[in-house]
Computed example of a mutant assay.
Amino acid sequence: MARALPLFGLVLLASGGLMGCGERTAARAALSPPDRAEYMGIETQLLDASTVSFIVRMRGARDRSDVVAYARCAAAQYTVIRGYSFAQHVRTNVRRSGEIWEGDGGFVISPDLPAGRRNLDAEVIVDDCREQGIPTV
Rank of each mutant, 00 (worst) to 15 (best):
L7T: 07
N119K: 11
R72K: 11
A71F: 00
P34D: 05
L7Q: 10
M40C: 12
Y39R: 00
A71Y: 00
A26H: 04
V56R: 03
E102L: 04
A76F: 05
L31W: 04
A75C: 07
I42D: 00
S32I: 01
D121M: 12
S85R: 15
V56I: 08
L47H: 10
V124A: 15
T136H: 12
V108G: 06
G16T: 11
T25P: 00
R59V: 09
L10I: 08
D66M: 00
S110F: 11
V80Y: 01
V124T: 14
R24Y: 09
A49C: 13
H89W: 12
I100F: 05
G133E: 07
G9K: 01
R118T: 11
I109Q: 05
G116H: 13
A30L: 04
G116L: 14
L120C: 03
G83A: 10
I100H: 03
F8R: 02
V126R: 05
Y84S: 09
R96Q: 11
S53K: 13
V80L: 14
S85E: 12
D128S: 14
L113F: 15
V52C: 05
I109D: 04
R91T: 09
N119S: 14
S15Y: 10
R3Q: 15
L31Q: 07
D48T: 08
A122K: 09
Q132R: 13
D112E: 15
V68P: 06
S110C: 12
A14H: 09
V11W: 06
L46P: 10
S110M: 14
T44C: 08
R130L: 14
R96E: 08
G16A: 12
R82F: 01
V52F: 10
T136P: 03
S110W: 12
F107L: 07
D112L: 15
P111A: 15
S15F: 07
D48G: 05
L46G: 09
N119W: 10
G16L: 11
D63L: 01
I134P: 00
V124D: 15
A76E: 12
D66L: 02
M58R: 00
S97I: 05
N119H: 10
S85A: 15
V67T: 09
A14C: 08
A61E: 01
R118D: 13
A75L: 01
S65I: 04
F107E: 12
G83C: 08
V56A: 06
G20Q: 07
R118W: 10
L13Y: 09
W101N: 06
R24K: 10
E23N: 05
P33D: 01
D128M: 03
S65Q: 06
L10W: 14
L46K: 14
E131W: 02
R95F: 02
G103V: 02
A37N: 03
P135G: 06
F54Y: 10
D63Q: 08
R96D: 02
F86P: 08
G98I: 05
S65W: 04
W101Y: 12
P6E: 12
G16Y: 13
A71I: 01
S110Y: 13
N93D: 15
Q45G: 08
R59M: 06
P33N: 00
T25H: 06
R57C: 03
G105C: 09
V126F: 04
M40D: 11
S65T: 09
D112F: 13
A14L: 07
T51V: 11
Q132P: 02
Y39P: 01
D128F: 07
F8S: 03
S53A: 15
Q88P: 01
T92S: 04
L12H: 02
G103N: 04
R59A: 08
